[in-house]
Design a protein around this nucleic acid. Structure first.
Lengths: 342, 342
DNA sequence: TTGTAAGCGTTATCAC
DNA sequence: GTGATAACGCTTACAA
C-alpha cells in the first residue's frame, strides 16, 4: 500500500530544526505562534520552513495534542437540501484553513444513538461539532459534548442556547410576516400544513401562523390545519385534506418547500389553479422553490450563512460569543400567491 | 481545551497488554488480525479488550501506518443533488466500519487545482479517494493519485477505467432507450437540451439521442438541439430556444432533471400544455423529478449505489476488481410524456 | 508464535 | 528565550 512516489520524502520538523540551527521545540513554537520567541529566531525558522515547503504532519499533531483539526457535522434530517446547504456553508468557512469536515448522519430513532455519537467524537478526536435540528433541540446532547470536552454549535429555529453555541433563525417571526402578506392580499381563510411533531421548527412556524391570524381576528382552528412530516408525500396528503373540506382555505402555508410542492400537486389533481383558486406559500427557499410551477412564494432560510458561522464559531471560540448568532430570513414573493378570487 | 470529563482515561494498548500478560506487539497483532497467532492467546487478549472496552487510537495508528482511515470525496459539480446522493451511498458503505468520510469540493477553473488536491490527500493521509464527474473524466488526476500512492475510484458515465477503479452507468444506452420510448409513442421531432461542453455525461447522452434518431431515420440536426449547463436557468432558455422555432419539436429530452424543469417552465410561459403540446423527459430522477408538475418522465441514475460501491472498492481493494462496476439505469415513465396531439 | 527495540512527527515538561 | 528529554499510542523490523 501507499507506495509513495519519487523524491517524496517530506521534510519533518527535524529537518527544519537542523537547517535553521535551532531545536525542534523552537520550530514547534514558531508553528504554534508562541508569543515568547525572539523575533530574529522566528524569522530565521520561517524562512527555512518556506524554503523547504514544510507542512506539519496533522496525524502527529493529533496524537500529541489529543485532538484532530477536524469538524464534525451531526444530523438526522429528512430535508436533504437543508443538510447540503449547511454543509456548503461550513466548507466556505474552512476553505483555506487547516480544518477538514467529517459528516456523521445518524438515525435518531435507533437505540444506542448516544453511544454512537460519543464514539464518533472520541474516535475522531474532533475539534468541535455542529449539530442540526431536530437533534440540536435536545439539551441532552449538550451534556454529552460538555462531558467529552468537545466544542459545539447548535443550529435551530429559536433561541436554544447562548450565542457562542448557537446559530439560529427566527422562524416564528418569519412566518408571521408571510401570513401578514397573505392577509394584506385579502385572504381570510389561511390553512397550515404543520411540520412533524417534536420539531421545534414545526412548532415555531405554527405559532407564527397562529399569532398572525389571531392578531387579525381571523380563524385559526384545527379545521384549518393538517400535519405533515416535511416530505413531498405528506404535503400531498395534508394538502388534499385541507382542500377537500366544505369550506377550503383560499391560501395555504406549508411549513417547508417540499410539502408546499405537494400541496401544489394536490391542488392540480383537483383541477384547482395556483394561485387562481388557492395561493400557496412554502418555507426554506431551497432549489425546488424556483423550480416548480408556478414558482413558489416562500421564506428564505439562511442555512448556508448559518453553516458558515457555525464553523467559524468552532474555529475561533474566542470570537464565538461576539459573532452574529441570529440570522435573518427573507420573504420571497413569487407567482404561487395572489389575491383571492371573489 | 479538551478538558476531558470524569473517569475518562481511556485504556491504551499497554493496558491491554499488561492485563492479558502479553506484549504490546501481540495485542497489535490481534487488532490487525494477524494470521500467525496462537488461538488461545488471541482469545485471551480479545477478552481483555472487550472487558476494558478498548478501542485503538486512530491518530496513533495513522501516525505509525502513515495513512488515516479516512476516505475523501473530491468533486466540483453543478448538480448538488447528485453529490448528496453519492455521499449517502458512501455513508451507507462506511457505516459500522472504522472509516470516516471527508468531503473536498474544488473549483476546477481555479489555478492550483492540482496542488490543492495533492495537499488534501497528503495532509489528510487519505486511505483512498473518490472522484466525481467532470473531474473524474480527466486522466491527469489518475497520474496524481498514482504518484501519491493513493487508491482511487472514479465515477463516470462511460468506461473510463478498469473495474477496480470505476463505478459507471451507461448513459448512452439509457438515453437511447428513453428516445425509443418517445418514438414508440409517435413522436417524430424530438429535441435535445445538451449538457455543458467538456462533460462526458453530456456527450454520452447526446450520442444516445442521436443514435436512436438515426436508427429510425428521424431528424437529429442542430436545429433540434440547444445547449445548457445542467442548471434550471439554462434549461429555461434552451427550452425557449427550441420551442420558439417555426417547427418546434413535439418532445424534448433534457440531459438532466433540473434542465427538464426549466423546459417545463418555458412551455408554460408560452401557454403550452405538458404533455399535451410537448412531452418532456429528464435524466437523474433526483427529488425534483417527482416534485414538479406534471411528474417528470426520466431516467433513474443509480448514484447512491455507485457511491456505495465506490467506497467498498476502496475499503476492500482485493475485491474491487471483481465487484460490479457497471450500474444499470432505469427508465421511469411518469406524466410528462404522452403521444403527440395530431 | 511471541517479544524487544526503535521509530512515526509532533508537543509538554522543566531545566538552563 | 531556548533546548534536552520524555511523552502521545501505535506499528515495523528483527530476534528469540
Amino acid at each position: 500500500m501507499a507506495t509513495r512516489g519519487k523524491g517524496d520524502v517530506k521534510p519533518t520538523i527535524n529537518d527544519v530544526a537542523r537547517l535553521s540551527g535551532v531545536s525542534k521545540k523552537t520550530v514547534s513554537r514558531v508553528i504554534n505562534r508562541s508569543p515568547l520567541l525572539n523575533h530574529a529566531t522566528r524569522e530565521k525558522v520561517e524562512a527555512v520552513i518556506a524554503e523547504l515547503g514544510y507542512v506539519p504532519n496533522p496525524q502527529a499533531r493529533a496524537l500529541a495534542l489529543r485532538h484532530n483539526f477536524v469538524l464534525g457535522m451531526i444530523y438526522d434530517n429528512p430535508n436533504a437540501q437543508m443538510v447540503l446547504n449547511f454543509q456548503e456553508g461550513v466548507l466556505d468557512a474552512i476553505r483555506e484553513t487547516e480544518f477538514a469536515l467529517v459528516i456523521h448522519p445518524v438515525d435518531r430513532h435507533k437505540t444506542g444513538l448516544f453511544d454512537d455519537i460519543r464514539k464518533f467524537i472520541e474516535q475522531q478526536r474532533l475539534y468541535g461539532v455542529m449539530i442540526l435540528p431536530p437533534l440540536s433541540e435536545d439539551d441532552a446532547f449538550v451534556s454529552l459534548f460538555d462531558e467529552l470536552g468537545c466544542r459545539y454549535v447548535r443550529m435551530g429555529s429559536a433561541e436554544l442556547d447562548d450565542p457562542a453555541h448557537l446559530v439560529q433563525s427566527n422562524d416564528r417571526q418569519a412566518v408571521r410576516e408571510a401570513i401578514e402578506f397573505l392577509i394584506e392580499q385579502g385572504h381570510r381563510r389561511i390553512g397550515l400544513i404543520e411540520g412533524p411533531e417534536g420539531f421545534r421548527s414545526a412548532l415555531e412556524r405554527r405559532e407564527g401562523w397562529r399569532e398572525a391570524l389571531q392578531a387579525h381576528g381571523l380563524p385559526h382552528g384545527p379545521e384549518l390545519t393538517a400535519r405533515g412530516n416535511y416530505t413531498f408525500e405528506t404535503g400531498l396528503s395534508a394538502g388534499a385534506q385541507l382542500l377537500d373540506q366544505a369550506a377550503p382555505p383560499s391560501a395555504i402555508f406549508a411549513s417547508n418547500d417540499v410539502m408546499a410542492a405537494g400541496v401544489v400537486h394536490a391542488a392540480r389533481e383537483r383541477g384547482l389553479e395556483v394561485p387562481g383558486d388557492v395561493s400557496i406559500v412554502g418555507f426554506d427557499d431551497t432549489a425546488i422553490a424556483a423550480t416548480i410551477w408556478p414558482p413558489l412564494t416562500t421564506v428564505r432560510w439562511p442555512i448556508r450563512s448559518m453553516g458558515r458561522s457555525a464553523a467559524r464559531k468552532l474555529i475561533h471560540p474566542d470570537l464565538a460569543a461576539k459573532e452574529q448568532s441570529q440570522f435573518p430570513t427573507e420573504f420571497v414573493p413569487r407567482a404561487s400567491t395572489a389575491a383571492p378570487k371573489a
